[in-house]
């Protein structure tokens, strides 16, 4: 069983919804990222999504675009991101890490090479935003050969047929994009999300995470009632942006923010 599957199984046994923070690797600098990952785990993160910077992030809103630009200005490459996971694994063998990004850096490294290096460093899976199952065959093969999960997005526009197809291709969990839009978009429609998550869960057996548009503890608590995982990205990254001048404060500030989300979600679980 993969580290991701094991983590979701143990959470289910404890009746706890996963909290999955997203941060862009190397934002605002390479040194901060690993310390931030540990701080997030301490604050209650169950799995970490680490963004791999790409020059043309078409699915991302302005907040994560700017984080990407800061990371690229630091020269952060895919191999650097893998190295950060290796460093994180030196003291945390438990928390799953999923790399989230776009295909071209992986394409340049080579699928097999990427899968081998990532697995050796302790990466657990990848979410490649611009690879739908129609184009994912070779990538899935390379990742599976190294025991890595390929996490897929589902969208409000996904038909039942697509949900089934993606369910068959994905492993670990699926990531339901809760709004039509880019990361950090607003106006989460909770009734609509509840409905779609219900449909997804009736069609595929994988855990369902919900992300895009979860900004605060109250929303996180509401989403926690209907999903297996709450994914928070832009709300964290915008706080990192506010602290670029004092990066040493970032792990503590983000840790506090996540503790608040965790407490609200756990209250929701009990309720």
């Amino acid at each position: 069983m993969s580290r991701i599957a094991a983590r979701f199984e143990s959470l289910r046994a404890r009746g706890r919804t996963a909290l999955i923070p997203f941060v862009t690797a190397g934002d605002p600098n390479a040194a901060t990222t690993v310390a931030l990952m540990h701080a997030m785990v301490t604050a209650g993160a169950d799995l970490i999504e680490l963004g791999v910077p790409f020059s043309d992030p078409i699915a991302d809103g302005p907040v994560i675009q700017r984080a990407t630009e800061r990371a690229l200005a630091n020269g952060i490459a895919l191999s650097d991101v893998i190295a950060m996971v290796r460093a994180f694994r030196a003291t945390d063998a438990q928390t799953p890490v999923v790399l989230m990004g776009y295909l071209n850096p992986i394409e340049v490294m080579g699928y097999a090479q990427f899968a081998a290096q990532a697995a050796a460093a302790g990466v657990d899976g990848a979410l490649v935003v611009d690879v739908p199952p129609e184009e994912g065959h070779d990538l899935v093969g390379a990742l599976r050969a190294q025991g890595l999960d390929l996490v897929y997005l589902l969208a409000p526009t996904s038909t039942e047929q697509r949900i089934r197809r993606i369910g068959a291709a994905a492993s670990g969990f699926v990531y339901y994009v809760s709004v039509k839009g880019v990361t950090g978009a607003g106006h989460l429609d909770l009734v609509g999300v509840a409905d779609r998550v219900g449909v997804i869960k009736s069609l595929i057996p994988l855990p369902v995470g919900v992300g895009f548009g979860i900004k605060d503890a109250a929303t996180a608590a509401q989403v926690a009632r209907l999903a297996d995982a709450v994914i928070v990205g832009s709300a964290i990254v915008s706080q990192i942006e506010d602290l670029v001048a004092t990066p040493e404060r970032i792990p503590a500030v983000i840790g506090d923010f996540l503790s608040g989300l965790r407490a609200a979600m756990d209250g929701a679980d009990r309720g």
Binding site: L103, P132, E134, A155, T157, S158, T159, R162, V177
Partner: peptide, 20 residues
């Protein structure tokens, strides 16, 4: 049928755009 010209072309987009 899937938009490929030999190894090129295709459909590399986020899931939200697949149905449209």
């Amino acid at each position: 049928a899937d938009g490929h010209f030999g190894p090129y072309g295709g459909l590399f987009v986020p899931e939200t755009l697949m149905q449209p």
